[in-house]
Design a protein around this nucleic acid. Structure first.
Lengths: 129, 129
DNA sequence: TTACTGTATTATTATTATTAGTACAGTTTT
DNA sequence: AAAACTGTACTAATAATAATAATACAGTAA
């Protein structure tokens, strides 16, 4: 279910955050559905429970899930209010354009620079950097 | 001339690589023009010369510059063969689309995931990761 | 009570970018 | 020839941080 790259520059917990967001947004994990417990998921992925907890905490901060001590962590309903349809269109267009750009020689580093520029110009609130 | 972010996840030397590529591609640094020496630039940016050297070595590996011991480092002509006009158009379109995507809630992490996906599907030869 | 949940804390390990210092080789200028 | 530049190479130390390890505590459910 999760394919993590331990040697990526992106920390494992952030990869987890991204992956879980994706699962939530694609309704693989449905609203109010319980996520695997920190210990269970840690065992499945053979990584430390603290790393899972860090990801869950981040997801909760960003409003994607809510956690109840003793019960578990669950998918939050509020985030689903985003216009997912339009978002999907943009994503597809984005993939097309990114592909073209990279064929033209734009490197991923340059793209990340562009992204971080845009991010800071937007106020930079949503990233966890 | 250079604005480096020492607390970025992206290492300083990679930021330098990106910045210098940009200057080369935009003809701010022209073909066969000499780049500042590793020691000079290090002093200007108040960072270690080794960091500059690492960036220069990377740029040389990627064919953007060539270095001659005792003389200096210079902009390579070969990389300028790219269709810069079309590239600029794509970049502008990209910025517009990326901005829209991030307004819709796509995080930079998600974008980087998309990029790395595309990168590996293209064969992934150009990145320095 | 037992066995789950989330949460918190401290210490340790591992990785990696960066710095620091030094040395050597080649070029240019005086 | 000498001085002052260039790039290059190498080792060691430092700093930052992700991840692990090991507990402990608190709430829930069987």
């Amino acid at each position: 279910m999760f394919d993590l790259d331990v040697r990526s520059r992106k920390p494992i917990y952030e990869q987890l955050v991204d992956k879980l967001k994706e699962l939530i947004m694609n309704d693989v994990l449905k609203v109010d559905e319980q996520l695997p417990s920190v210990r269970t998921l840690a065992q499945q992925l053979t990584i430390n429970p603290n790393t899972i907890q860090k990801a869950y905490r981040e997801l909760e901060t960003q409003g994607y899930i809510y956690s109840i001590k003793g019960k578990g962590s669950f998918v939050n309903a509020t985030v689903k209010s985003v216009n997912t349809e339009k978002l999907e269109k943009v994503k597809k267009e984005l993939i097309r354009l990114l592909t073209e750009a990279m064929y033209l020689g734009v490197t991923s580093n340059e793209l990340e620079t562009i992204i971080s520029d845009i991010e800071s110009s937007l106020g930079g609130g949503s990233s966890i950097d």
